[in-house]
Amino acid sequence: MARESLGEFEQLVMLAILRLGEDVYGVPVVEEIERRTGRGVSRAAVYIALRRLENKGLVSSHMADPTPERGGRAKRFFRVEPDGIDLLRDSRLALLSMWQDLEPVLGGR
């Protein structure tokens, strides 16, 4: 079965989850992406991406216990599933091979 390809934003979201390690929920994901990319991110877009990724089976989640500082509302913790990691690896390889030999043209830091 042909693997689905990942959108850029979806990759960013999954990478952020992986970087943050354990107990990852929506708020730190947004912050991590903003910090790393230096761009503002629409929160709604992040949640939509999470929803899509979960529908595709690339990330999974579970509810935690409610905490008082959030108006008594519970958090949902996310983690990347093996399928998601495979897909990330594929797109990384694809990008790397596309980048190869182009450093002189495009320059870099």
């Binding site: 929920y25 929506g26 708020v27 929160r43 949640y47 929803r51 509810m63 409610p66 905490t67 500082e69 959030r70 108006g71 509302r73 519970a74 958090k75 949902r76």
Partner: peptide, 15 residues
């Protein structure tokens, strides 16, 4: 099923 945690996230950031 999304309301609880997304509203929670937003309330946290709002705080």
């Amino acid at each position: 099923q999304e309301r609880e945690w997304i509203l929670g996230d937003l309330e946290e950031v709002f705080g």
